[in-house]
């Protein structure tokens, strides 16, 4: 039997006195396109950070590709795209080529020079996000949506098996959000890259995803998106509060 790519086993986490995650268990299988949904402060980004090893859970453990995350070495298998606004210094003097090549840093390893075919790999990664024409441009000259595509290319260059994205459309124009999710769906289907993302764009993302996890400190639902309508009203209210409403949608419902 093939081990899940990410196996979260009874994870809890607190920020000082405040409980952020309470006994979370969840599996992400190969080929999944999972959206983690929840209100502000529900622990979505915290859960992603725990998956990435950026913070340690106070209880429970995570297995990555069947290996305990503490001893997991192949970090290049997991690509990460963070919220643009939280992450890089926007006035940084670097070209798109330099930024994308930076994605090879872990694969290349400490004390080793960048591989000779770095340029070809950069072009290939940029082609996957339709940004090859921008290779020599300065990263600070690009729009929010273009920068986010570059960051996906930076994650793709290391040939990851899973891509973890934290609110990837923050700072992207509304009209470009659709195209952005289309690109993620293509990468999921054509390149068989498993996707895990946290987002608020519920309406836009629903058509592309395969799985949903409803999180608010604890998991209220996790499964195929088509099964979401089976979630009881009580559970739905516990997950999102009184303001939640059910909207009928292709293949099921969403909130």
């Amino acid at each position: 039997m093939v081990a899940p790519l990410i196996d979260i086993q009874d994870i809890s986490f607190e920020y000082e006195e405040t409980k952020a995650l309470d006994h979370i268990s969840m599996k992400v299988e190969e080929g999944d396109f999972l959206a983690i949904l929840g209100p502000n402060g529900s622990g979505k980004s915290t859960l992603l950070k725990i998956m990435l090893g950026l913070i340690k859970p106070s209880k429970g453990k995570i297995e990555l590709f069947g290996v305990d995350s503490k001893s997991f070495k192949n970090r290049e298998w997991i690509g990460y795209v963070s919220q643009k606004s939280n992450s890089f210094n926007s006035g940084f003097p670097a070209t798109v080529k330099e930024v994308v090549a930076g994605g090879l840093v872990k694969k290349t390893g400490l004390f080793h020079r960048m591989p000779k075919k770095t340029y070809e790999q950069v072009v290939e990664a940029l082609e996957a996000v339709s940004m090859e024409a921008f290779i020599d441009r300065s990263i600070s000259e690009l729009s929010g949506g273009q920068q986010q595509r570059i960051f996906i290319a930076r994650a793709l260059i290391a040939k990851p098996k899973v891509l973890i994205l934290d609110e990837p459309t923050v700072g992207i124009d509304h009209e470009n959000v659709q195209a952005f999710y289309d690109m993620l769906a293509r990468l999921n289907q054509d390149k068989n890259i498993t996707m895990v993302l946290v987002t608020h764009d519920v309406d836009t993302v629903t058509d592309r995803i395969t799985h949903v996890a409803c999180l608010n400190q604890t998991i209220h639902f996790h499964g195929y998106k088509e099964q979401l309508h089976t979630m009881s009203d009580e559970k739905r209210e516990a997950w999102y509060g009184h303001s939640v409403r059910k909207i009928h949608h292709i293949g099921g419902s969403h909130t």
Partner: peptide, 20 residues
């Protein structure tokens, strides 16, 4: 450490998530 310093300077969170 040139490549590590570059990645760390550009995006500290990404560098840590990459396992540097």
């Amino acid at each position: 450490f040139f490549k590590e310093l570059f990645v760390l300077s550009f995006d500290d969170e990404y560098a840590r998530a990459s396992g540097l």
